[in-house]
Structures are given as C-alpha cells and as structure tokens.
Design a protein around this nucleic acid. Structure first.
Length: 581
RNA sequence: GCCGUCGUAGCUUAGCGGUAAAGCACGUCAUUGGUAAUGACGAGACCAAGGGUUCGAUCCCCUUCGACGGCUCCA
C-alpha cells in the first residue's frame, strides 16, 4: 500500500470513528457520509439538537476512548433488503442504498468495534494499533447541504485534521497559523491599503492612497505590456439600459446577480457586471474593412455583481471590482495569433512576481448544452484553436470540462494563495456568440460581409483579487517598484534634520517615494516603524554620515548595506525600479 | 442565501445585570537618544444599530446590519 493510500485509509477510518463517537453521545443523530479530504476527514450528520465548536473536545475525547477497542475492520456484503432494514430510520442511507443498487454495485457494510456503516471500504486493518491518539484533532463545525445541493437539507459537518503522526499534525497546524498571518485582510489593514465601511456596504472595498498607488502601478504595468501589441484604451459608462443585456443574453442568464436601477421615468437600467457588451458597441459604431482588424480595446474599469452575502470574502470575492479588461475584435483566422500575444503578456506580467501559473482549458460540457449559447460545432471549433495553442506552448493544462463561460471556451490562468487555495487570475476567452448576437462584422477582400470573433483578455482578472493574492504571496513585502513608500529617511537626532531633509528632497526630485521621519522619537522606534510598515529601504543620517557626506542604507530584505554616496543610492534605486526586482 | 462562531476607543484585547479597563497608535511637555519600544500628563467608546425582559442591560432574549469559517454560487 502506498503512503497516500495509507493516509487516506487512516483518515477514512477516523471518519468512521467520529461517526461512532457522535452516535454514542447523541443517539438521535442520523449519520450520512464521511470521506477523507486533503488535510483530514469530515462526517455529515443530521443532529436533533444543534452542536457547536464547544462540543468538539468532548467528541474528540470519546473518539480516543472508542479507538482503543477498534481492533479490526470487517467488511460484509449485504442484500438491498438487509441493508434497508438496518438503516430503516435513516433516509440518507436509504437514498445511498438505492443509488448503489441503481448502479448495479454491491452493498457492503464495514464494522469496527460496535459501529457499522454503509461503506465501500478503504480502512486501516487495525485502527487501535495503527492510529495514534494524538495524530488527529477535530477542527470545526460547519453547515453543508446534503449531497451538496442547496435545495436539500442543511446538515452539520464536523471537520477533523489527521496526519500520520503528532509531528505532522502540529506542522500542519503551525503552517496554517503562519498562513493566517499573511492573510490579505489583516495585512491590508496593517499596511493601510484598503478598508470597508458598514455604511457603504459589504463587498464594496474602499481604497486608501497607498492601496490606490499600488493598483495604479499594476495597471500601468499591464498597459505597458499591452501597448506593445497595438491595444488602444477605451472608456465606457458603468450603467446601461437593460436592452444591451437582453441582446447579449446576460439579462436572462444572470438577472439575479445584476444590480438594477429603475429611473424616475420607469426605465430599467443595470450596473455593468462585465464590459464586453459595452465594448461591442464601440466596435459596432462603424463599418470595418478587414484591413483595419484586429481592433484591440483595453479598459480598466469597475464591474458590479450582486454576489450572495455569504460568499463575500475580503478582496477575494467582492461586489465591486476593477477588471483590467481588453477585447480584441478580429477575423477567425487572426484569433490564434492574437491569443499567443495575450499569452505572452500574461507570462511577462506574472513572471515579475515569481508566480507559478497553472493553465486550465475550460471547455463546454456537451451533456449540458442548455447552459451555453450557440451551436455545438462552433464550440468544438473554438476549443480546437485553444488546444492548438496549448500544444504550441508545450504546457500541461488542467482539464476544465464544463468550466467554460456561457459564451465561449477559455484559457484560465490560476495562481495559489498562501492557504493553498487556487484562484483564477488571468483569462483569455474566445467568444463567437457575442459577435453573432450583436451582428459584428467586417467587409472581406471579396467585398462581402464577414462575421468576426471576439477575444476577452484580462491579465490580472480583477485587480482586487490579484491584490489579495499578491499581498499573501509577498506577505506585504512588496518589491521596490510597487512599494507605496520606497524609502524612509531617519535622522538620528534633531540636529541631523537639515541634512536628512536634503536627502529626502533629492529622492523626491528623482521620483522616489520617500518619507522623512523627523519626529522626536528615538532611532530604535523609527527603525521599528519602518520595519512594521514593510518599507523596503531606510536611510540613517547622523554625525558620521554628515561628516562623510554619505548616507547609511539599510534594507528590509538584506539588512545593513553600509555607507554609500548619494549618487550610488539613486543609481541603485533606479536600476531596481526599472528592472522591477 | 443556508449552517456555525463573533461584533467593546484608530489597532489588539480585558471585563461584568448597577452606564467601561489596558497596551500600542494619537496630542502636549520633558528627554539629544546610533538600530524592535524614554518618562509624565492628556484626549479618545452612548460597548454595531433597533426593539424587548428588568428598578436597572455593554452583559439575557428577538430583529437588522457587519465580520470570519464552511456549504451553495462565481459571466
């Protein structure tokens, strides 16, 4: 048995043990399913009386008690009748039994100690010997819908952490604590980057001067890359008549998520949840010759979506967010070339931050064609173009069956946050439906009308989400070019203020974002303050520096860098900023 | 939206059925101090909001708003 199987079996056995303990302590409870997961296991129950996190230690204690008597797992095959009799009072198990027999599979029961469960197997042979009582820990209580369907009853899920041994478990818990310290919500507050207001509403982030500076620098960088490829900036209003979305197909499909506005004259408007429909109308303003294509429109602009309140999370999921959006209107034969350009922009952009990107080919699911606009052949054609590109770029792509947008397939680029959660960041999408719906075309060489296609190309995706990932990725230690304050000038005593001010002005004149700390506090306090604010560099000015007409440079990442000349300082900073290190 | 936990000064927290406490940050004064906290004093909170129970509520109950962890969702 491999190590992963063994760990899986350990976790699955613990799920059984959890159910055994719960049923012993709360006999009226109905147990449902309990699989092993990435960091442990869970089991879903329907409790008569609700339980809370406070009950977990008791349950955990009971598990440890029962564990001693669990010497051997035994599996027995049962007939449908026997199985149903055993679980006659548990409608969840009855549903599972029906499902198993429906698929023509065998029904098996597994027993250990005094506990028997419907299960397909995968346990340790001797839990009492193979599971040490300190390698697992009940983690938390959460709600979960039966079978993951929100129409079904909400069950109580108990999560547990489990590893081979105590050391591994503790290591994991520590890692989680560390990750928590990098949480963008915490760092964003500490570094004064963004805030929320109860008066403005949840999911509506407000950006401070420092946070706004970073956003703008990121956006400028994307533009710097884009403009090399012939993109042009456009601008659009943030609302529209509903007619635009009726034509695009969004009104029907996403009407619940639209923020709607009724005017005093009774007309219905909506806040834009995306920009493509607006952009189509910029393209549609005139007749185009094939010679004028592609038309590439870039536009960083805020979108608004009425997300479910329970889904909101820091900057990762919000109701207003800026997309660094771009749309390319071109002929079918130009799509591959345009895709490759966007691909290069994506990789150039993410390379600078040291992100490892994972590509996902998000395609339609032929089983649910009703979810998508347009005919299936068109989807096949579009998806084949994307497959070609992946082949040409020689990367391993994740299979994203059924992950396509409703208007077309896409290449999604995923980055991981500090808690190991994967987030979609950049996306390149091929859209053959929108041009159809808005009747977008060009005149071909033959003088005939030719249907064009449209590409969606966001590099950061949403700036909010990208910021959340970047903050956690760097723990707030932004590279020099992105740091809101790049260097802090610290005079040792007040009689050094004059020289410090001179250095400060020199930095300002050279477009370096400097801060002068000439308050009366002591040196240690000022240095601490610079470190707490994760400022990349600080300069100490005292008698020694004035005498030598130099400055002492110190770095957040590299420590003491010694005394250097003013010119050397500027040269070093300019080089680092230019190279985005 | 659903399940659970939670909401006390700008921040981090303490507290209790009798209208609030500490540290940091902030202000004033003193201190002239070479790398993670100099001292004193001061200002700052109707304890998220609204109802209810009570002689009396920050504390108990209800509702709303907001946060977090899950579930569901995510163009």
């Amino acid at each position: 048995m491999s190590e992963t199987d063994k760990l899986h079996n350990l976790r699955h056995s613990l799920a059984h043990l959890l159910a055994a303990a719960v049923l012993e302590m709360y006999p009226d409870t109905k147990n449902t399913i309990g699989p092993s997961i990435e960091d442990g296991f869970y089991y879903d129950f329907e409790f008569k009386e609700p339980i809370s996190d406070k009950d977990l230690p008791k349950i955990e204690k009971k598990m440890k008690e029962i564990l001693k008597s669990w010497k051997q797992f035994e599996g027995i095959e049962k007939t449908e009748k026997e199985a149903k009799e055993y679980f006659s009072k548990n409608e969840y198990k009855l549903e599972l039994i029906d499902e198993i027999t429906g698929k023509g599979e065998k029904i098996t029961f597994y027993t250990c100690g005094a506990f028997t469960d419907l299960c397909r197997g995968g346990h340790l042979e001797n839990p009492s010997k193979e599971i040490s009582s300190d390698c697992f820990k009940l983690d938390r209580v959460a709600g979960a819908y039966w079978r993951g369907n929100e129409k079904n009853k909400m069950l109580t899920r108990i999560y547990g952490l489990a590893f081979e041994n105590k050391e591994e478990l503790e290591k994991y818990i520590n890692q989680r604590e560390e990750a928590k310290k990098r949480d963008h919500k915490k760092i964003g507050k500490d570094l004064d980057l963004f805030t929320f207001s109860e008066l403005v509403g949840s999911g509506l982030p407000l950006w401070t001067p420092k946070g706004t500076l970073i956003r703008n620098l990121l956006d400028d960088y994307v533009w710097e890359l884009r403009k090399q490829y012939g993109y042009m900036k456009v601008e659009i209003p943030h609302i529209t008549k509903k007619d635009l979305y009726i034509t695009s197909g969004h009104w029907d499909k996403f009407k619940d998520e639209l923020f709607r506005i009724t005017t005093r004259e009774g007309h219905e408007f909506a806040m834009k949840p995306m920009n493509c429909p607006h952009h189509t109308q910029i393209y549609a303003r005139k007749a185009w010759s094939y010679q004028e294509l592609p038309q590439r429109y870039a536009n960083t602009t805020t979108c608004y979506r009425d997300e479910q309140s329970g889904e909101l999370a820091g900057l990762s999921r919000v109701r207003s967010f800026a997309q660094d959006d771009a749309h390319v209107f071109c002929r079918m034969e130009q799509t591959k070339n345009e895709f490759l350009k966007i691909w290069d922009i994506v990789y150039d952009f993410y390379k600078v931050f040291g992100f490892k990107l994972q590509v996902r080919l998000s395609t339609h699911d032929p089983k649910y064609m009703e979810k998508y606009l347009g005919e299936e052949e068109k989807w096949q054609e579009a998806e084949n173009i994307l497959r070609d590109i992946i082949k040409e770029k020689k990367v391993e792509a994740i299979d994203g069956l059924g992950e396509a947008a409703f208007y077309g397939p896409k290449l999604d680029f995923m980055a991981k946050d500090s808690l190991g959660r994967e987030w979609q960041v950049a996306t390149i999408q091929l859209d053959m439906n929108m041009p159809e719906r808005f009747d977008l075309s060009c005149t071909s060489e033959k003088g005939t009308k030719e249907r064009i296609v449209m590409l969606h190309a966001a590099i950061m995706g949403s700036i909010e989400r990208f910021m959340s990932i970047l903050i956690e990725h760097t723990a707030g230690n932004f590279p020099l070019w992105l740091s809101p304050v790049q260097v802090k000038v610290i005079p040792v005593r007040e009689n050094h203020n004059e020289y410090a001010k001179k250095i400060f002005n020199l930095l300002k004149e050279n477009n370096i974002r400097a801060e002068l700390d000439d308050k009366g506090a002591n040196l240690g306090g000022k240095v601490r303050d610079a470190k707490n604010n994760k400022i990349p560099y600080w300069i100490v000015i005292g008698d020694k520096e004035i005498e030598a007409n130099k400055i002492t440079l110190e770095s957040r990442d590299a420590g003491q860098l010694g005394q250097i000349l003013q010119e050397e300082l500027l040269e070093k900073f300019n080089k680092e900023i230019r190279e985005k290190k």
